[in-house]
Design a protein around this nucleic acid. Structure first.
Lengths: 146, 146
DNA sequence: CCGAATCCCATGTGATACTG
DNA sequence: CAGTATCACATGGGATTCGG
């Protein structure tokens, strides 16, 4: 897995301006974008990364800070995966009661730039998307693809 | 929903260099990043966007082009959602047999920049992540968080 | 306090068959 | 060709309980 290669060229038949055309030589993995999305696409990873972007947090602090009310189970699974990916560093202090601290690694911090780009795009197009939803829903009363 | 606001300031307690600190005034939606990830985080949307980045495609062309073998059902659901989001334009030609063409809207094309950023990050850190996986797996023989 | 174990349900996804 | 309908199954995720 993950042996994709990517190149960006000028649009050939693309409509407007300087839109990057994405080309893969290994269509099986669509240039590895899937790698990142598998990592950030779940329900909670981004929240953890965003919270840790502000500094070191303990388990309970993370749980309280994350909007929507993450369960212990999901927080555990999420930080485990992020740790395995090398995005989060986990430090255990053998005190009693136990204390565990989580922080972003350097690679984890580099991800916050991406998250910021996602947020910027999201904010910039929020209204357009909402309008598109309204229009679509008005034209399609019952069917469910929402 | 989605009334979040976001600001980027200089890192306060952040470790290293110019890492953006993400601040939300409405923690309930973590700056709207969730909006984009809900859209791109599913299994197929990115593939469709990447393929359409190269130009107009018909239903069957999309299905054949997408790696992993997407089912009719999932392709239908995926393009429906993208259409509802205003990222894809769907054009029906009332011929027989019927012909339907899909293409990215302007907003859809703007997304390809984000996808490219994700791909770049993924490629840049692929090896580091793989190494992290190996190290973690070696240290944790049996447990499953993979 | 941190987290593992278990139970249970909602959702996502695939396979197949059928229609305009 | 471009879907829709139905079923069957895997996974994600919440609630709760138990342990170090």
């Amino acid at each position: 897995m993950s042996a994709g290669h990517m190149a960006v060229t000028s649009p050939a038949a693309a409509p407007a301006a300087a839109v990057p055309v994405i080309v893969c030589d290994t269509p099986q993995d669509e240039c590895g974008v899937r790698d990142v999305l598998d990592r950030l696409g779940d329900k909670w990873s981004v929240y953890v990364v965003v919270e840790l972007a502000s500094g070191i947090r303990r388990f309970k602090e993370l749980q309280r800070a994350i909007p929507g009310g993450i369960s212990q189970r999901m927080l555990t699974l999420t930080v485990r995966r992020l740790e395995r990916d090398g995005l989060v560093k986990r430090t255990v202090y053998p005190t009693v009661p136990p204390q565990v601290e989580y922080e972003l690694t350097e690679m984890g911090h580099s991800l916050t730039h991406l998250v910021k780009a996602l947020a910027d795009w999201s904010i910039a197009h929020r209204r357009a998307i909402a309008a598109s939803h309204e229009a679509w829903d008005a034209a399609h009363p019952d069917p469910e693809a929402r």
